[in-house]
């Protein structure tokens, strides 16, 4: 099979898996609606009948936003991980590296702490978005003109500061319930999200992903280093700026509504790289689909494993992701030996 055919087959398989998991995500839930009924309720609505109205409400207001967010957030995490690994030419890069996730979390935590989240509808995700924007402005201002090392260092500094401020907020939390709410939010979850969350995060995710997708050819050129890429006509500083802004928009939007979901941005590009011949531009669509597959699968799994315990999505991705990553490292080492 030719290389291009193998690549198309991979994308088609990932797209199929995404579609199946999206459908599964619409079907799994405590309401226990039959498949045919759920589809009819989703598409046609209730039509006056009381049970049907309830079904339509569950499908349209609870399950559909959850599935849509899983799709968009997974794609954002996978895609931005692939872009950052290509930009920094380092397989350990991931979206959290820029400090976006930690700062968005801090924004959300402050919203819970100050009562803003309870007082204003959407106060929490808006505060989280503000946190992400501030993080990006700081990282770009500190490291924009410098090299990739400057970006990594600025991102680490912003992340650490945001984490410290989050700890301080927990530390000063006036009552245990607020602290518990903060901790639970930080674990990352897609449950109880509405279409309003989709409309809030959606534009940021879409804009971010479009910006990131366009970087493919430039990332290919960066395979031979900054000067090599420049000699091929790539404006490296502009690529860096777009990678930072695109990641901030997509991952900032994702974190704002779902909290921090770890390991997707790191593991997915890593896993798919050998399957696309390590070509950075081909890794982008594959990682976006792969991220969607991983997040949708994990979100279906949390509902199946512990239907009544509200197992957090971010906890599951990290519990599965970290040992899996260890296994990848072990396998890579064995191949080299």
């Amino acid at each position: 099979m030719s290389e291009i055919a193998a690549y198309r087959l991979l994308l088609a398989s990932l797209a199929l898996a995404t579609g199946i998991l999206f459908a599964l995500s619409l079907m799994v839930g405590p309401a226990g609606i039959a498949f045919s009924d759920s589809l009819r309720a989703l598409v046609l609505g209730g039509g006056g009948d009381e049970t049907r109205e309830a079904m339509a409400l569950v499908m349209r207001e609870i399950r559909l936003p959850r599935a849509l967010l899983g799709l968009g957030i997974g794609a954002s995490l996978g895609l931005s991980g692939a872009v950052l690994q290509g930009l920094l030419r380092n397989p350990l890069a991931e979206p959290g590296l820029l400090g976006v996730s930690a700062s968005a979390s801090l924004g959300a935590v402050l919203a819970i702490y100050t009562g803003l989240s309870a007082a204003v509808p959407l106060g929490l995700p808006l505060a989280a978005l503000a946190g992400a924007v501030i993080a990006v402005l700081v990282v770009q201002a500190m490291a924009g003109g410098g090299g990739t090392l400057a970006i990594i260092l600025a991102g680490v500094a912003v992340s650490s500061f945001a984490a410290a401020m989050t700890s301080l907020t927990l530390n000063l939390s006036p009552n245990p319930f607020a602290a518990l709410e903060i901790v639970f939010w930080m674990l990352g979850s897609l449950s109880d999200r509405s279409m309003t969350h989709v409309w809030l995060a959606g534009p940021f995710i879409v804009v971010g992903c479009v910006v990131l997708f366009r970087l493919g050819p430039a990332l290919d050129a960066l395979t031979i280093g900054n000067d090599g890429a420049r000699s091929l006509g790539v404006n490296v500083a502009r690529v860096r700026l777009f990678a930072i802004l695109g990641t901030a928009s997509a991952v900032g939007g994702a974190t704002a509504v779902a909290g921090a979901i770890g390991f997707v941005g790191l593991v997915v590009p890593h896993l798919l790289r050998p399957l696309v011949g390590a070509v950075p531009s081909r890794l982008l669509p594959a990682s976006a689909l792969g991220g969607a597959v991983m997040v949708l699968a994990a979100d279906v799994a949390v509902r199946l494993i512990a239907p009544d315990r509200d197992l957090k999505l971010g906890v599951l991705t990290s519990i599965v992701g970290a040992p899996f990553f260890l296994w990848l490292v072990w396998r890579a080492r064995r191949e080299q030996a």
Binding site: R89, T223, I224, R230, L232, G233, V234, G277, A278, V279
Partner: peptide, 25 residues
């Protein structure tokens, strides 16, 4: 065209793809 002193090739890409980068401009 410029050939840098560092011989950096960051990813395990096929040789022909590295050479084909030269057509990018």
């Amino acid at each position: 065209a410029y050939l840098p002193q560092d011989r950096e090739i960051a990813w395990p890409v096929a040789v022909e793809r590295v050479v084909a980068l030269g057509r990018m401009p």
